[in-house]
Write a protein that binds this DNA or RNA. Structure first.
Lengths: 110, 110
DNA sequence: GCCGCTACTGCGTTCTGCGCAGTACTGTGC
DNA sequence: GCACAGTACTGCGCAGAACGCAGTAGCGGC
């Protein structure tokens, strides 16, 4: 089954959640997301999301050289990012609850 | 808050859920979805989804004249539609569970 | 006759995830 | 010393889906 469309709008939240508590670089975030169950997420999507969140002012960024390959561009949540994470989490829960209600009891809408 | 992106891929499921048990026409499906909590859903999105699901062979369709306005194009689930509903429901639950785990315990991915 | 509600269609826009190609650095095996 | 695999990021164009808006059309009330 294709979860591509389900990810829309949620990848932001997933990336913010993964970066909460511990900074990470793109390649690493991809691995963390896949390990968490989002196995079909494309790397380009994650890099794009990181850049978008950074452009929106939710992330800080700093480059760290690596001994095992090219430099790594680390990202971390700032105040705005943490606020965004909290807000998006609430929105998600509200949305998920609505969907759960709709699926278990469609008569609410009849 | 903008739930537009969250709806992606889920509107199919929501529409199928609403039509499960009782047939409905577009304008009515919009009202039912809004009543269920998806208040920001656009009418064009619902009509588009109905057409898409119909084109995919998941819905039956029949026109009923109305005394209070133009004719109504009713849609109902067929066998394929019910199968689709079941499958999409499972996919959704799996996805929602993954997200819930990620949000409550990001360390699963650390 | 016009307005407002019901009901559906079609078109163009926007957002965002994806695939793929390209760049570049490191370590391994031949 | 060179091809190759793994790591790490960028850029480009595409596709799917929700949306806004305009248009069409039937109905009833003032």
């Amino acid at each position: 089954m294709d979860t591509t469309q389900l990810l829309k709008g949620v990848l932001d939240l997933a990336v913010l959640a993964v970066l909460d508590g511990e900074d990470g670089y793109g390649y690493d975030v991809v691995r963390r997301l896949r390990a968490a169950g989002l196995e079909e997420v494309g790397d380009a999507s994650v890099y794009g999301t990181l850049r978008r969140l950074y452009a929106a002012g939710h992330l800080t960024s700093y480059v760290v050289p690596s001994a095992e390959g090219p430099h790594r561009k680390y990202y971390g949540l700032n105040v705005s990012g943490r606020a965004q994470l909290e807000m998006a989490t609430k929105t998600w829960h509200g949305f998920a609850d609505t969907m759960a209600a709709l699926l278990t009891d469609p008569e609410v809408a009849a």
